[in-house]
């Protein structure tokens, strides 16, 4: 896939004007379910496409972790939208969204065992075969897990990456949420990210209600996800990172501050990575495949 770089922002109608004016964005992500597949693309997206700003098509309703193979009609819609947008890749989630004829309207966790992993891998291969561009899969946030998981989250991701050729969309906000709510080992997950398989990173805000942290995309980004982003960049070098904001849109100044905070976290990580590489040149061979940041 054509590598992404810099800091990105999730395209939303409420942010369309802002994104139109923005000259420093490295890429945007467009929500597939918000586009009418039979209507012309919204004019602001056509302008972004003409500007040559790299776009990712992000989907939430394939349900690749579900028991059914992915619906060919949904795949066909995604494939057409990806082509019309000129998307560099399509991203989806390690999740199921429907079962027993019921749409949950939510991303639900898959059981972390071999049987579910094999079916997920099969569904991923079916989706890849139907899409004109690479597929990247995202780790989700969940408040609960399936009983007695055979694998940790890190092991499960490694298993998915070894069984398929999918790319990874690492959501550090989801990882942060799972660490708080489920005790997920963030260091193990970050260590499981192969640089050549990382498409990009998601960053988002959330809020704590009682004992639980909710990944809302409607609140400011706390320092936790940014710290994880910094650690990842310290391991891999420059990583493209995108802010997702879905609701309670902040003022332009606040939004700029969040984008700059993401950039700064990446830069801190890259500085650590560079000093590490300088001290241990043998690392360079491993890390040099990370995508380059735009000058």
């Amino acid at each position: 896939m054509k590598p992404l770089s810099g800091v990105g922002l999730g395209w939303r109608r409420q942010l369309a004007h802002r994104i139109d004016q923005e000259t420093e964005l490295g890429f945007v992500e467009v929500l597939a379910e918000h586009l009418n597949p039979t209507a012309p693309l919204p004019a602001p997206l056509v302008r972004l496409k003409e500007r040559g700003l790299p776009m990712v098509l992000h989907a939430v309703s394939l349900g690749l972790g579900g028991a059914e193979p992915p619906d060919p009609r949904r795949l066909d819609t995604l494939a057409r939208l990806a082509e019309r947008l000129g998307a560099v890749c399509v991203s989806e989630h390690v999740a199921f969204v429907r079962a027993g004829g019921i749409e949950s309207g939510h991303l639900l966790p898959v059981a972390r065992g071999d049987e579910a992993l094999d079916l997920l891998a099969e569904n991923v291969r079916l989706a890849q075969a139907a899409l004109p561009v690479p597929l990247a899969l995202e780790n989700i946030a969940t408040l609960f897990e399936w009983p007695e998981p055979a694998y940790t989250e890190a092991e499960f991701l490694t298993g998915l990456l070894s069984r398929t050729s999918t790319l990874l969309l690492l959501d550090v906000a989801n990882l942060y949420a799972n660490a708080l709510n489920l005790g997920t080992d963030t260091a193990a997950v970050l260590a499981a990210v192969p640089p050549e398989r990382l498409a990009y990173v998601h960053v988002a805000g959330g809020v704590r209600h009682g004992a639980l942290y909710h990944d809302t995309h409607a609140h400011p980004v706390p320092s936790g996800p940014l710290d994880l982003l910094e650690t990842l960049a310290a391991q891999l070098g420059p990583v493209p990172a995108l802010l997702e904001r879905d609701d309670h849109f902040p003022s332009p100044e606040e939004l700029t501050a969040e984008l700059r905070a993401i950039e700064a976290a990446c830069a801190r990580g890259v500085a650590r990575w560079k000093s590490e590489v300088a001290q241990r040149p043998e690392l360079h061979a491993v890390t040099s495949s990370a995508p380059e940041v735009r000058p």
Binding site: E68, A99, G100, I102, E115, D118
Partner: peptide, 14 residues
């Protein structure tokens, strides 16, 4: 395997 998973996921979704 798909049938088993379908049933387990349906129970959870209900």
């Amino acid at each position: 395997a798909r049938e088993r998973l379908a049933e387990a996921q349906a129970t959870l979704v209900r």
